[in-house]
């Protein structure tokens, strides 16, 4: 459904993407995980036509984005990291303008608006001005808007950034629901638990390259099963063990003790890159 070959992009001397090779099959919920500036947003911007690439190839649903950019755009929905709704227009008007941009008929626009606003639980706010909505409601509206023209592929750039935990979980449920309806989803995040909860497969992106790709479970297991966090000489250190008993014994022997927990994706990311995701 998404394929990139040696995708490169630089901003001045900064290399944002360095030969990015990616393949996401149809129906998958795929997450790009990496710190700010890793290249996640740049990849999405190129795939959705917001940015030019320097070189390489990119395809969405088999369409070459260079050869037929307008067709490629019709197949994709995008909810950007920045809230880009028209705050002076109502919820319904935002949906309507988007439908017109994608050449939907008046009947289609009406029906899809109702269907999607009900899905994101915003139908009762259809005539409210967007500026009166909370951050969480705006995020849900952005997802509804991105879906209104019936895309086969949904790009979500940091869909829950800045949201409180309760609202974040509602957005996660929505993303899962959308994916279960058959829409392929590619999302970027720097929230570990978001990638772990949502994604069927994740890719660690670091300095513009994919450094590891697989299911969250597979990747985490490469490091070990258990992590023992200790605080030594002013530095937090994590040690990884395949066996819980070994980890417990290690902690018992550590001066000052420590904490035992299960290994997560962040441990794997640090192990591979030497850097934290956040």
């Amino acid at each position: 459904m998404i394929k990139t070959e040696s995708l490169k992009k630089s901003f001045g001397r900064t290399r944002a993407l360095d030969s990015l090779d990616l393949e996401v099959p149809e129906g998958e919920l795929f997450a790009f995980l990496g710190p700010n500036g890793a290249g996640k947003t740049t990849a999405i911007r190129i795939l959705t036509g917001l940015s030019f690439k320097d070189s390489g190839k990119a395809f969405v649903a088999g369409v070459d984005i260079d050869k037929d950019p307008l067709k490629a755009k019709r197949l994709c929905g995008l909810a950007t990291q920045n809230v880009n709704l028209d705050s002076e227009l109502s919820v319904r008007e935002n949906m309507d303008i988007h439908g017109r941009l994608f050449s939907m008929s008046a009947k289609e626009r009406r029906e899809r608006t109702r269907e999607l606003l009900e899905l994101v639980e915003l139908w009762d706010r259809a005539d409210s001005l967007v500026k009166s909505l909370s951050g969480g409601l705006k995020r849900r509206l952005m997802i509804a808007r991105a879906l209104s023209h019936g895309p086969r592929l949904l790009f979500l750039d940091e869909p829950t950034v800045g949201l409180d935990p309760a609202i974040r979980r509602r957005v996660w449920s929505l993303i899962k629901t959308v994916n279960q309806k058959g829409v392929t989803v590619l999302l970027t995040t720097h929230y570990i638990e978001e990638a772990e909860f949502l994604a069927g497969r994740v890719a660690f992106i670091h300095e513009g390259r994919i450094v590891r790709e697989g299911t969250p479970g597979e990747i985490a297991l490469e490091v070990g099963k258990w992590a023992a966090d200790t605080f030594q000489d002013g530095v937090l250190k994590s040690s990884f063990f395949a066996d819980k008993r070994e980890a417990t014994e290690f902690l018992a022997a550590a001066p000052g003790g420590g904490t035992l927990r299960k290994v997560n994706l962040e441990d794997a990311f640090i192990h591979l890159t030497g850097k934290r995701v956040l």
Partner: peptide, 14 residues
């Protein structure tokens, strides 16, 4: 400020 131009860029608008 509102990044609304991105909405047009991502849509099939010539």
């Amino acid at each position: 400020y509102f990044f609304a131009f991105e909405e047009f860029q991502a849509a099939p608008v010539s």
